[in-house]
Design a protein around this nucleic acid. Structure first.
Length: 297
DNA sequence: ACCCAGGCAGCTT
DNA sequence: AAGCTGCATGGG
């Protein structure tokens, strides 16, 4: 039986909501289990659950310092200070009202890059499945609190030595080439993605775009979700739809104008605002489709 | 059977 | 710069 270490983070649910955070499409490995969330960070199994006094974290193994988890969760970031910077308009107000407590966590950059390489032209449940296959097949087995085997996210070294055919067994299709080449680039050029966080945002984006399979959208996701560039604003099909309906009267807009608007309008935490809008429009869309289903019954 | 999915690369206009 | 198309795979 594995030893479990525990830690309580004193934070109110309205300032840190685990459901909103892990359901918002920024991470792909967290799973809801018995009213808590379980995932793997830095090769360790972690369980998080809301408690009356805050968020309780359980970690597999003996843990004497918690800075890695505090950094991942960004637990010392004040949500109020971020929300204050959002523009005030009916749509953003609605998003904040609906999604208050949604947080952006700070993922490990390699995992973030690799998983978003899997995301192109895929739905979120399928991305999760691919990542799951990848970890089972190539990840190192790590201590688990329950009987089931548990795997760390595979290192670039392991992925680089795998063949494209082996990677395709994880059902990632044409993305296998992207993943293998990214891993090889990191290994051969001795790239430490974490260092990109110390560069200017233009330079960091330029380096990310030099990976095959990384375009503007995925580059912005990696910057926002793993490198601390809180103004990076990924524009995917959902956000584009949200921006057009909310701010452009549902009229067609040129890509360039869309980008210009997001840069000038959403402020220094634009990426955070983007995540609120993204989750908000998806919730609205879910409700609408549920209504439609009920009409058909 | 068809359409689309937290896109991107490689084309053509 | 826009506007097309193919891409592997799975789900509605």
């Amino acid at each position: 039986m594995q030893e479990i270490s525990q830690k309580l983070f004193a934070v109110k649910k309205q300032d840190y909501n685990l459901d909103l955070t892990f359901d918002s499409g920024q991470t792909f490995r967290w799973q809801k289990v018995n009213d808590g969330w379980e995932g793997v960070i830095y090769g360790k199994w972690v369980r998080l659950e809301h408690h009356k006094d805050g968020i309780k974290a359980c970690v597999c193994g003996k843990v004497s310092y918690w800075s890695w988890l505090e950094d991942y969760l960004q637990i010392n970031t004040s949500l109020n200070r971020i929300l204050r910077e959002f523009p005030r308009d009916p749509h953003m107000n609605g998003a904040v009202k609906t999604c208050r407590g949604l947080r952006i966590v700070r993922q490990e950059p390699w995992e973030c890059l690799a998983t978003f390489l899997m995301s192109s032209n895929k739905q979120i449940p399928q991305i999760k499945q691919i990542i799951n296959n990848l970890c089972e097949r190539f990840g190192e087995q790590i201590p688990s609190p329950h009987g089931r085997p548990l795997y760390a996210f595979p290192t670039p070294q392991v992925i680089a030595t795998a063949s494209e055919e082996e990677l395709r067994l994880c059902k990632m299709g044409f993305r296998a080439e992207y993943l293998k080449k990214a891993a090889e680039k990191i290994v051969h050029e001795k790239i430490d993605l974490r260092e990109l966080s110390r560069l200017s945002s233009d330079k960091a984006r330029e380096i990310l775009l030099s990976f095959r399979g990384v375009g503007p959208k995925i580059a912005d996701c990696v910057m926002l979700f793993s490198l601390g560039f809180m103004d990076a604003f990924p524009i995917d099909v959902w956000i584009e739809k949200a921006l057009r309906t909310f701010y452009f009267d549902s009229k067609p807009v040129k890509q360039k104008d869309l980008e210009k608007f997001t840069r000038s309008y959403f402020g220094k935490f634009a990426g955070y605002a983007q995540q609120y809008l993204y989750h908000y429009i998806r919730i609205l869309n879910n409700r609408a489709s549920i209504c439609k289903n009920e009409e058909n019954i």
